[in-house]
Nucleic acid binder design. Structure first.
Lengths: 151, 151
DNA sequence: GTAAATATAATAATCATTACAAGTTTAAAC
DNA sequence: GTTTAAACTTGTAATGATTATTATATTTAC
């Protein structure tokens, strides 16, 4: 077990999550693959390393991580739940053509929350949808990208 | 058929949606019940008036409305897709205790979109979560609200 | 009024997620 | 170091929302 794994292990212990092999691997995957993967993508990505891995474990682990605040859930689309290891405040942009999800900085405090006086705000999410520069370029050039080109 | 129904019918025709009885009723329901209902809630709410109503029709109708821009989809939670008839820009606050969803005004243009230069933004969503004033009051008084009180 | 197109309805199929039960691993106690 | 209990993982079954499919009904166009 290398140094990084130790750090991951410590990170879990710090949050009172017992650092099992599977949990460390899921955490490692989330750190290495910050494209907001689905549970299925995580499962598929780790199956090679952990042949006995079960999908239940992925869901169990993710839910454990969510409860401890280690990961956040993204519900941009209604048919795909995505998971985000970065917990500091940022917005998400989903390209409707290629499906990629980009992070972007936002100033959460700039929101006019006049109307929400008396509300206890725990969680803020900002989701944008549209077309990313790469896909815009391809469309202008008459090329077709992945997916059904819903535009 | 009353005047309002005629207006609804006209509203649909204007968008090239054939104004069938079911579609008018779904639209009417969405206008009368602006609590961001689920497909199931719409179905249950209309079953009395339309005994032969099918859930497929609800989903078909909602998807038709979404395509024409008549309603918007809310994906705040991963297990419940909600539908919103108000298409002008506003944010959503979901109370994690009682489950209610509140609208609030936001100034979309106030977002710092520096980082999104070159992106074509089509759709902007702002979701907040927390506790509404009513539930906060009840919690302070030691009362229990609906749901599992996740706090 | 008839043929073609569209909408509805009922059922089956799909797919992500959760629930459950059994086996395995880890940690603690002695 | 063995034993015991707790926690974790796994595989399968169950659930539930949404979509696909197909037959029937309705509307539109000629």
């Amino acid at each position: 077990m290398d140094l990084q794994a130790k750090n991951l292990s410590a990170e879990l212990s710090k949050r009172n999550i017992r650092p099992s092999y599977q949990r460390i691997k899921v955490l490692e995957y989330l750190i290495k693959n910050q494209f907001h993967p689905t549970a299925d993508q995580i499962f598929t990505g780790l199956q090679g390393e952990i042949p006995t891995l079960s999908k239940s474990t992925i869901y169990n682990t993710l839910n454990t991580f969510i409860q401890s605040g280690l990961v956040r859930v993204l519900n941009i689309e209604d048919n795909e739940t995505r998971y985000d290891i970065i917990t500091e405040s940022h917005g998400h942009f989903k390209c409707e053509t290629c499906g990629a999800i980009f992070n972007f900085k936002i100033n959460i405090d700039s929101f006019a929350t006049e109307e929400l006086k008396g509300f206890k705000v725990i969680d803020k999410n900002v989701y944008f949808k549209g077309v990313c520069p790469k896909c815009l370029l391809n469309i202008n050039q008459g090329k077709n990208n992945r997916k059904e080109n819903v535009l």
